[in-house]
Design a protein around this nucleic acid. Structure first.
Lengths: 107, 107
DNA sequence: AAAATACATATCCATTTGGCTATGGATTAT
DNA sequence: ATAATCCATAGCCAAATGGATATGTATTTT
């Protein structure tokens, strides 16, 4: 089993996949041929990566005839943003507690 | 060669490593023995993961006698937060442009 | 109807990864 | 001085990963 957050982090860990996702964010909907051009890897590899991004909820595909149009789902990034914020909060909470303690010692 | 952002994403992709980092954020400085307890893996594995986290700038170690105290460096999360924000911005920019276009077509 | 295109799936392979145990060096405790 | 503790490094191994090519199935084009 694997948590959703883990799937998300793992999906974004690969540079080729991140590049695909970035491109979809910048350029909007793209077909697989378009994405393959400039991806630096073969079409089957692009398809595989898109599958992994889809499983992570990061992209969705719309089939139209013989081509599939993929688009980014930026909403899927929320857990990542939340996690980052949470880690910062933990850290600040501890820092504030320390400051408070030092402040009281200073009295 | 590998970009800094890539190192960061890769470091956070592993659940064991993320758990170690989370714990350091929550609890502040910990020694390796402490981190090993509850990590679910052996001490050498914990050391190895801490090394990877250190290379990514996510933790730093302070040697004191025979023990090493590790602490989280939440500042290292910035590139991740920036990247997330950037992806959202790309998406919104495109969305705004579309709204604008639709608005003008509506005239 | 035949050829070409778009994409996904199936296999295969080399490399990377994440875990383990064993060990060694350094420090602290007895 | 000896023993125990802490941590890192060194090998080792199975599994996962990222790539390639080959192929199949739809759909368009000609």
């Amino acid at each position: 089993m694997q948590l959703a957050t883990d799937t998300l982090f793992k999906a974004l860990a690969d540079p080729t996949r991140r590049a695909l996702f970035e491109r979809l964010c910048r350029e909007g909907e793209c077909t697989v041929v378009v994405l393959t051009s400039g991806a630096g890897v073969s079409q089957p590899v692009v398809s595989k990566h898109l599958g992994i991004l889809r499983d992570a909820g990061l992209v969705e595909g719309r089939v139209n005839g013989r081509q599939t149009h993929y688009r980014a789902r930026t909403a899927a990034l929320s857990p990542l943003a939340d996690w980052t914020r949470e880690m910062n909060d933990f850290w600040h909470k501890r820092f504030d507690a320390l400051e408070d303690l030092l402040g009281r010692m200073d009295q």
